[in-house]
Design a protein around this nucleic acid. Structure first.
Lengths: 346, 346
DNA sequence: TTATATCATTTAATCGATTAAGCAATCCAC
DNA sequence: GTGGATTGCTTAATCGATTAAATGATATAA
């Protein structure tokens, strides 16, 4: 049942050599001085047979696969899947395919997948790195493989990184709170030392100090898997223990969801009892009642840059292109959840 | 800089043949009667060198890749990305990798990607088919390649399909509306003749007829890309043109979002002015005010079945395993948006 | 006329594995 | 001690492409 037409079959049927067919198929007919007549004959026959070259064989020979491996923290996270979609679109236009996988921010999984990508000989890597895989990234770079990190990076590593100004994103959100006269502003985050979380926390502290406020930080406990129920409980306890809290900034989109649920269960009203801002915008946030203010990451721009930088690496493979960290700005989308009802124009 | 250790290098360094190394590495030492001593020597040396076999070469020879191609409508859709995540987890346990891609429900993109998957010699296919690719699916099956469709299927095709009972899902939602004494129940859907949408529409009509109600169907206009703004406008117009509508069922998760926004902009209150149920549950629905009732698809079960069936196909490759359509049940998650406020226990 | 270019295509090596078949050396039975 | 089995490994073909080098034919130049 399985039809396997190889380049040799084509060649045999036309009484030519496989090489000739290969040249024609790779658009090298002119360069290799294949006659117009021969070229047409081959092209026609190839089309008739519906022959498709075996890319595995091609890849074995050329070492190229026209595939880009993309490793994100979780494909189910709207932030990452949103970027994935745009990157995918870019890639197809450039005749590349994207293979995704999720790490769940686990070094072990990430290592395994990077290893699998290498085995598959992907041409480039787009990676949202979990902690502790510096060496693996470095190893890729040592072997001259194009790598672009995004969302976070390793300060010691001379990789190409696309990130947002997390510090400023949080800082702007805090300024907005302050401007609206909130005094006891909490910050809910996870106990991570990765750059993106570290910067967000620093942004918070900076704003707190600048305004002479006292910090109110809740780190949800570390767990292998983000545990929605657990986060909710912990945030509830935090709010009960700190009833003076009149505003709260969630450091990730899933924390915002857990937190909003906690707030709902406590019967607190947003924004009158407590104001809310989330890091990462979300299609749904405008629909909540009240709608949720958010620090929006420039998803389109991140995707564009990721692809652009990767393509640059792919092109100038030998002379290592000036690796750099590109920092994009976030945008505060002000909605109802962050300003006292009395201020709202109804 | 690039180190490329091949099986021949290993062999040469140990003064043995590549074949011997290959046998040992594939666990065929005993079968091929390689001495214990030799085996250990090879294993040790391989470990020391950190040699990793080239899977492209392996794949070329064996025709296997340990990769599964997964084609969904949109990786950014939480329904699909949720399933992707679970399937991925299963796959890793079985030493398979998943390559995702999105079709945007476009036949052309789907054909291209299926073609690319074939070129990559993936071992199996998990596909959410857009319309018009019956022939491509059939072609895969003709070549004895393991294929599992999910979410929707082609009635004429003897493929393995994992779907939910869309008819009953909608029907149960409608019964719930009726029980709560809603009389003018609208149904917002897309003009698709694919099985999943067809069955949902049929479920609606069945319930309408059974209860002697009059149908109120809005098909948003067809567009290449789901256009959130446009959907919203159309739903707004629909509601304005049919002010008697006291309940509405959205046939997809993104329609629900657009619809809820439309309702919000019209200043209607849910559920008192209009009750709402969405097809597909969502992490956020419990957080809306009011919370949104939804027809939840059994995401875990779908993922489990997809993987189980695919593995069955992969195993018993020659004797075509009894292809079948597996129908799973949905579950109505009743929340606030679908019952009049007066009924609620506060 | 001989040497040199140009043309159009083929030969054959190669990528890095797998695996059927082959071949010495040793062992065992009668 | 001769034939057959067993052991332990090697040879070489193969998967399906790419591509440098070779080839043979004709055309042009000196």
């Amino acid at each position: 049942m399985k039809k396997k037409v190889s380049i040799h079959d084509i060649a045999k049927q036309l009484n030519v050599s496989a090489a000739t067919v290969s040249f024609v198929l790779n658009g090298k007919a002119t360069e290799k001085r294949i006659s117009e007549e021969m070229e047409q004959k081959i092209l026609k026959h190839v089309k008739e047979l519906g022959y498709r070259p075996n890319r595995v064989a091609k890849s074995l020979r050329t070492g190229k696969s026209k595939i880009i491996g993309m490793l994100v923290e979780g494909i189910a996270d709207p932030f990452f899947s949103g970027i994935a979609r745009i990157v995918e679109e870019h890639a197809y236009k450039l005749d590349y395919k994207i293979f995704y996988a999720s790490t769940e921010n686990e070094p072990k999984i990430a290592k395994d997948i990077i290893s699998a990508f290498r085995d598959t000989q992907v041409d480039g890597y787009i990676i949202v790195p979990p902690p502790g895989i510096e060496d693996d990234i470095q190893a890729l770079m040592d072997d001259n493989l194009p790598v672009v990190l995004f969302d976070r990076y390793f300060p010691g590593l001379a990789s190409c990184n696309i990130v947002v100004d997390n510090f400023d994103g949080v800082y702007q959100a805090m300024r907005h709170f302050v401007k609206n006269e909130y005094k006891n502003i909490g910050f809910v985050t996870i106990p991570s030392t990765q750059t993106q979380m570290r910067d967000r926390l620093n942004g918070y502290h900076h704003a707190i100090n600048e305004n002479g406020l006292s910090p109110l930080v809740k780190m949800v406990s570390f767990n292998v898997k983000p545990d929605h129920e657990r986060y909710k409980q912990e945030i509830k306890h935090f709010l009960e223990a700190n009833p003076q809290t009149d505003a709260i900034l969630f450091a990730t989109n899933y924390l915002a969801i857990s937190g909003l649920e906690a707030i709902k269960q406590l019967g607190l009203s947003v924004p009158d009892d407590i104001a809310v801002i989330g890091f990462d915008d979300n299609t749904h946030f405008s629909l909540f009642s009240p709608s949720i203010t958010a620090v929006a990451q420039p998803v389109q721009e991140i995707s564009d840059q990721v692809m652009q930088q990767l393509m640059a690496c792919l092109a100038g493979n030998e002379k290592a292109p000036a690796k750099q960290t590109i920092v994009l700005q976030t945008k505060l989308i002000i909605r109802e959840s962050s300003q006292k009802t009395s201020y709202l124009v109804r």
